[in-house]
Each structure stands twice: as structure tokens, then as C-alpha cells.
């Protein structure tokens, strides 16, 4: 494996946290490389429209927003490489981040590798993914014109997807395990006002069924302990995220959900390694908070490198 050039900081992930950090480390004249396994932007690209990022009163398309982030990071010298971090190890005074075919060496690392949508973990879920089960309403919604679909979840993302899907489907169920939503109020108001949406409170999905395509979900009402089949063409899963931290297990401390433990400066349990955004335990899953955490991490890296002299 070739030893890549030495940088001052390796940033893992080009989502909001990683790119915001790169703007700051670039302006600090730190040689910055950002590793991105897919395309710059992160999970927010899967959202329909961003209307809660301050500074854009009419909202902004996530692709446009993140394209601006990328341009701003590159303007100040950050290099974005298409590569996936496979591990981090210590070598003398450096951290070495192993990519797919290259290694990246630096005295500081910012982990901003984000998170992926969580699966339900029910029978037939994998087999019927792409055959009616989906984790991305903006991608797959148009396949469900005039169909009956359900969204599982009760957070901001679930309700945003539910409202968006009513543009296509004729009937939409929201399946939620509790008797109230934790989503922000404005989204709840939109759900309650939408005549196509029916909420199934206190309900969970026990199984998905169907021969070639999804035909029904087996839904259980937790309060009444009653199970019933719900005929469906589509089932959209939006029950939270799992952090991308497999490659740092045993390197930095993780909490019980696999998120990286950080302090208020975004420092992890290892000197010189910082974490920000959805992958870190102290960060709500928002673009704006990811940006804040990324900037904090960048400032901490600056200070840390100065302290090394």
C-alpha cells in the first residue's frame, strides 16, 4: 500500500460537519484532505428540501447547499479524495488513516463519517428492500403513484417523508410505537392536517410479507397487544440512524449506540483525534449542529497542532 502525502489534518467524511471543518482548517493554512466514499454532501442529500438551515428563508435544495459547502472548502485549499477510511493507527507522531488503496498520514484527524439509516430488523426486510421497502422517500417515492404506503417512525425525518410521499400516494399510514410524535411541532401540524395521512399510534411492524413485492406489513398494537395485517404497496423506514464507526472500534471510545464520545471541544479519547456531526454522541442530527461541531473540531485541531509546535 502506498504511503500518501503527509497532511496536517485528515477529515473523514464530506458531509456538513467534515466540509465545515475543512473551510476552517483550510483558512488556518493547514494542509487538509477530506476523504469521501461516495459524493460530497452526506445524508442531507437524501432529503427533499432544507428549510431549517439559517440564512435561507425560502429554503434550499440540499444538493445546492452542499455544493456550496464543497466549493467553499476547496476554495481555501482542502483536497477532497474519493476514498473510504478502513482504519486508523498510530505510527510515531502521526495518525495513519488507511483508505481503500492509499494511506493518509497526519498529526490530527477529524472523524465526520456520519450515519446510515437504521433497519427494522424484521423478517423479509432484506428480501423486499427495493421491492416495496425503502429507506429513502425522495429516491423511491415516485414509484408509488396512487399506491398505499406506510412510514415507520415519529421523528422529524419520518414526518417530513410522510408529507412528501402524499404527493404521490393515495393513502399513507404513519406507524409509530408511541402515543405522540417527537418530531418538531410544525411537521406534526402538517401531518395532522393532511387528509391522506392516518396515524397508527402505539404500533410497530413485526414482519413484512409478500411473494415478489411487498404486499403487507404485520402490525402490532402494543397497547392492545393485537396483531393485524396492513395491506401495503410501500413501506418507508425512518427510525433513526446508526453511526459509521466500525473502522474506529478499539481506537476511540464509543458509547452504547456506537457513537464516538466527545467533549465540548469535540475531542475523542485519543489526543489528536476529533469527531463531529452525526457520528459523535454530542450532536443532534441536524445540518446546523453538524456545522457547529465541525467548526469546533477544526478550531480544536488548530490549537492542538500549535501546542505540538
Amino acid at each position: 500500500m502506498s504511503a500518501g502525502a503527509a497532511y496536517d489534518v485528515v477529515i473523514i467524511g464530506a458531509g456538513p460537519a467534515g466540509l465545515a471543518a475543512a473551510v476552517y482548517t483550510g483558512r488556518g493554512r493547514l494542509r487538509t484532505v477530506v476523504l469521501e466514499k461516495a459524493i460530497p454532501g452526506g445524508q442531507i442529500l437524501l432529503t427533499d428540501w432544507v428549510e431549517n438551515y439559517p440564512g435561507f428563508p425560502d429554503g434550499i435544495a440540499p444538493f445546492d447547499l452542499m455544493e456550496n459547502f464543497r466549493k467553499q472548502a476547496e476554495k481555501f485549499g482542502a483536497v477532497i479524495e474519493t476514498d473510504e477510511a478502513k482504519g486508523i493507527r498510530r505510527e510515531e507522531n502521526f495518525w495513519v488513516v488507511a483508505g481503500q488503496s492509499k494511506e493518509y498520514k497526519a498529526r490530527a484527524v477529524i472523524i465526520a463519517s456520519g450515519a446510515a439509516y437504521r433497519k427494522l430488523g424484521v423478517p423479509n426486510e432484506t428480501r423486499l428492500t427495493g421491492k416495496g421497502i425503502s429507506y429513502c422517500a425522495t429516491c423511491d417515492g415516485p414509484f408509488f403513484r396512487d399506491a398505499v404506503v406506510a412510514v415507520v417512525g415519529g421523528g422529524d425525518n419520518a414526518l417530513t417523508e410522510a408529507v412528501m410521499l402524499t404527493k404521490f400516494c393515495r393513502k399513507l399510514y404513519v406507524i409509530h410505537r408511541r402515543d405522540q410524535f417527537r418530531a418538531i411541532k410544525i411537521l406534526q401540524e402538517r401531518v395532522f392536517a393532511n387528509p391522506k395521512i392516518e396515524v397508527l399510534w402505539n404500533c410497530v411492524v413485526d414482519a413484512a410479507e409478500g411473494e415478489n413485492n411487498l404486499e403487507r406489513a404485520i402490525v402490532r398494537n402494543l397497547k392492545e397487544d393485537r396483531t393485524f395485517p396492513l395491506p401495503l404497496d410501500g413501506l418507508f423506514v425512518s427510525i433513526g440512524m446508526d453511526p459509521h464507526t466500525e473502522f474506529v472500534k478499539g481506537v476511540v471510545e464509543l458509547n452504547e449506540w456506537g457513537e464516538i464520545k466527545v467533549d465540548f471541544r469535540m475531542a475523542t479519547s485519543q489526543p489528536g483525534i476529533y469527531a463531529a456531526g452525526d457520528v459523535a454522541d454530542a450532536c443532534p442530527k441536524q445540518v446546523a449542529t453538524a456545522v457547529g461541531a465541525g467548526v469546533s473540531a477544526a478550531l480544536s485541531v488548530n490549537e492542538y497542532l500549535e501546542s505540538l509546535g
Binding site: 461516495a38 481503500q100 428492500t129 427495493g130 425503502s134 423511491d140 415478489n212 410501500g234
Partner: peptide
């Protein structure tokens, strides 16, 4: 081919469907 989610990658050999991959997958 019953595609209801994209990206989907299908692999055909000799006119027959051999593999179906749904969603973003790694190169490996």
C-alpha cells in the same frame, strides 16, 4: 423486473437475470 427502488443494479448473463443489488453498494 419489479424495480421499486433505485439505484438498482441488475446483472444479466445469457439473457437471464442473475443478480439484483438494491441501493448504494461499495465497489468491493
Amino acid at each position: 423486473y419489479g424495480i421499486r427502488g433505485i439505484p438498482t443494479l441488475l446483472l444479466f448473463k445469457g439473457g437471464e437475470l442473475k443478480e439484483t443489488m438494491v441501493g448504494v453498494q461499495s465497489k468491493d
